[in-house]
Design a binder for these strands. Structure first.
Lengths: 157, 157
DNA sequence: AGTATGTAGTTGATCGTTCAACGAGATAGA
DNA sequence: TCTATCTCGTTGAACGATCAACTACATACT
């Protein structure tokens, strides 16, 4: 007789946690995004990209690498960088060593926008997430999400 | 002398956790969404709405209440329900007791779509998230996200 | 009753993301 | 060298979310 693998249903408790996760990430991301937009005209995805650029040598990263770092599609990064370029926050540079390569570079203006935005963002993360969280719980969440990344994103980040 | 409240910077460890959270939710949601779309033509937001409807008395919830339950704007819910209505998964009903009220109702066809989708979804949540997570860590994440919801979503969910 | 204010839900424009298709340069094999 | 095949990055169309404006009904006040 054949054994069909039954779908492993979630326990009531697991379901409760999963829903809290869904709802929590929704309101948290939404709020951080709104705060950033209101104060600096920057969306969360844009902000994340700028952070990566600011930390890279030469404040410059190749498009594909950038896409991988923030886990967005290449197309998405192309569009996002195009928008940021229009605002003079980043610029595109030809990549030496690879004729196809294009790298995004954070401008000085972009860097100062990011510096300002970082305050808003970090304050939000602190107030909405860290403030009322038990540090041990916070660590636990880190372990879990790190595991998720490793299993779904081919061991990156 | 005046004391300006300094931005409470994140520790290296907190930053590590926060980035894992950002990256993890991105790849996790993306994957769950893709699985659902590929197998049942349903997005995550759509799926969440159907779950709420399926649990409600009469498989029916008023638009505003639904919007609040999934933490989406009313406009967004209107559009989403409109799409689902086109596919005969939900239908709109006039709400008795309130002339303005409209309630979304899950159709029988919608219910069977949801039943099928639930297998895919739950399997995903299990495989990508729960499987390799320590149960205590998982509980910890639940506490944190519950706290986030309570502070940002006016104590709902 | 009549007016003002608030809430429910919708609409259409705009903006950001996804998707499929593409051009161009790199890489590997015959 | 020639020709696959792969990766890089872009493009434009389609789709979904956001936003401001709006209609219609409800509620509260006078």
């Amino acid at each position: 007789m054949e054994t069909t693998t039954a779908t492993p249903w979630l326990s009531a408790e697991q379901q409760r946690v999963w829903r809290a996760f869904l709802g929590g990430t929704t309101v948290l991301m939404d709020r951080l995004d709104r705060d950033l937009r209101a104060a600096h005209g920057l969306s969360m995805p844009e902000y994340e990209i700028l952070v990566r650029l600011s930390e890279a040598p030469g404040r410059s990263i190749r498009m594909a690498e950038l896409a991988d770092a923030v886990a967005h599609s290449r197309s998405r990064v192309t569009h996002t960088i195009a928008r940021l370029e229009r605002e003079n926050i980043v610029l595109r540079g030809q990549c030496s060593e690879d004729g196809r390569g294009v790298s995004a570079v954070l401008t000085d203006h972009g860097f100062s926008v990011l510096e300002a935005a970082a305050h808003t963002h970090v304050q939000g993360v602190h107030d909405y997430l860290i403030e009322n969280a038990d540090p041990a719980d916070f660590e636990a969440m880190g372990r879990i999400m790190q595991g998720v990344i490793e299993s779904l994103h081919g061991r990156k980040f």
